[in-house]
């Protein structure tokens, strides 16, 4: 399944890039992330509990970041598996300076558009019976991730500015 889209963060590009590499931030923003451990350079181990309506799945997996071109782009590979199935997402994230049109940013209107484009493979029960809802749920999870990232970004900016 192809996924693609963009989300504008009220953050400068450098900062947005840093946040996207910060395990603590990632752990906080990935919906259902219960544990994220660094196991190597740009490689993390992760436990996730994804809850969507009544559906819940425990996934154990890995997050890898490759093709680093800070602060412009990087490739994100997320793999996870659990009883309900397994998934692998492989996407290129491109960060482009942009103007924030909605929401409040302490930076005024300067922001970063994160464009993502990639492929999600799903297997097991989820793939066999979840087709109808995969697209809308994947979009929802990505949306939630960026919302939380924007939130976290705003907080850290605040912390940096307020002594």
């Amino acid at each position: 399944m192809k996924v693609g889209g963009s989300y504008t963060l009220p953050l400068l590009r450098q900062r947005a890039h840093e946040l996207l590499q910060d395990p603590a931030i990632l752990a906080r923003c990935m919906p259902g992330c219960e544990d994220l451990k660094k196991i190597g350079p740009d490689e993390y181990e992760m436990q996730m509990k994804v809850v969507v309506s009544a559906v819940q799945g425990l996934f154990a997996g890995k997050v890898r970041i490759t093709d680093q071109k800070p602060p412009e782009s990087f490739r994100l590979i997320v793999e996870g598996s659990g009883k309900v199935g397994f998934m692998k997402g492989d996407g290129l994230l491109t960060l482009v300076p942009a103007t924030v049109t909605t929401g409040v940013s302490i930076l005024g209107s300067e922001g970063t558009e994160v464009r993502y484009e990639g492929d999600v493979q799903v297997g097991g029960t989820l793939a066999g019976v979840g087709q109808r809802l995969l697209d809308s749920t994947a979009k929802m999870i990505i949306r939630k991730f960026f919302e939380k990232l924007a939130e976290a970004g705003a907080e850290t900016e605040q912390a940096a500015i307020v002594p």
Partner: peptide, 14 residues
């Protein structure tokens, strides 16, 4: 079947 050979019409819902 998708390209990874997952049967994606795996139930009467689809």
């Amino acid at each position: 079947y998708d390209e990874n050979a997952q049967l994606i019409t795996g139930e009467l819902m689809d």
